[in-house]
């Protein structure tokens, strides 16, 4: 099993294989399952993601039981149809897919956790935008998910992917780094550029806190997936342009782990600090659960 991003990049350079291919081979080896079986399982995950995005973007959109979140993916869709978004249509297309997915998650719909449910919008937001932008085939879309998952495994094992242990940088930050690496590969960048994109993406979200209002996965979680997707595209474009991070990816991951451990518990998925601790955050909590929690 690849123990670092450096090992993955080295293996990709030596064999001429993509990160997606190396991840598929690793999965075959670790699980003892056939390539077909693994491919099929990832296809189901892709279908789940697609269904969630479509659901979030259709009609008036979906709304959570609390009505704290919902309907905003549709607002973005309508805005895109009638305006030229300031950050460009492609950027807002990614944001739309990200928000749609997390609105479905907040409404207790079916999502694919990538790497977590709270950060489940980031990757589909990037992927379905790239599908249009780069005319990706289904095979390329599944490769995108294997690339993202392959590098995500290294982050998960060396820093973590739980908001309660590492803050939101571990969730949306990890998703953004995974998406950046996979976006570079989808755009025919080099493995080294994928690693650079990861470094930039991680560095830009380092320290992001996990502060869910009322302990729900709604505010600010849904909109944080917008920055996860946007940050990934910025990092991918910078890496494809030849920008470099200076700090190696594996050291960025180490920094993420240390920053996460250094965050106070109030900013690690306890619903106490950050936005959850604001007067409005506390008032929402009291309205939903009463004062006893």
């Amino acid at each position: 099993m690849y123990n670092s991003i450096k090992e993955i990049v080295t293996a990709a350079n030596e064999t001429g294989k993509t990160i997606a291919e190396l991840t598929i081979e690793q999965e075959c080896q670790l699980s003892g399952k056939s390539r077909d079986e693994i491919w099929q399982r990832m296809t189901v995950n892709l279908q789940t993601m697609q269904a969630a995005v479509q659901r979030g973007e259709s009609g008036r959109g979906v709304f959570s039981q609390t009505h704290l979140t919902g309907g905003e993916a549709v607002k973005i869709k309508n805005y895109r149809a009638s305006h030229h978004p300031l950050s460009g249509d492609v950027m807002m297309a990614a944001v739309q897919g990200a928000i749609a997915t997390n609105e479905v998650n907040a409404a207790m719909g079916v999502v694919c956790a990538t790497p977590t449910a709270g950060s489940s919008g980031t990757l589909p937001g990037i992927l379905f935008m790239l599908k249009e932008r780069l005319s990706l085939t289904k095979k390329q879309m599944i490769d995108f998910l294997f690339t993202a998952g392959g590098v995500g495994l290294v982050i998960a094992n060396h820093a973590g992917i739980a908001g309660a242990t590492g803050g939101c940088q571990a969730e949306v930050g990890s998703a953004s780094a995974m998406g950046a690496a996979a976006a570079v590969e989808a755009a025919n960048g080099t493995p080294e550029q994928s690693a650079q994109a990861m470094s930039i993406a991680i560095s830009n979200l380092l320290g992001l806190v996990c502060d869910p209002i009322a302990g729900l996965v709604e505010i600010p979680c849904v909109k944080r997936n917008a920055i996860g997707a946007g940050n990934a595209l910025i990092a991918a474009d910078m890496a494809l342009a030849g920008c470099t991070s200076k700090i190696p990816t594996d050291e960025c991951i180490m920094a993420m782990d240390k920053v996460g451990r250094g965050l106070p518990a109030s900013l690690r998925e306890t619903g106490i600090g950050g936005l959850a601790g604001t007067p409005t955050g506390q008032a929402i909590k009291a309205r939903i659960f009463g004062n006893e929690v």
């Binding site: 995950n45 998650n105 907040a106 956790a113 790497p115 977590t116 908001g163 309660a164 996965v217 709604e218």
Partner: peptide, 12 residues
Amino acid sequence: IIGPTMIGPSSS
């Protein structure tokens, strides 16, 4: 990392 397919809201 890519999965599980699940009903929300939180994987952990």
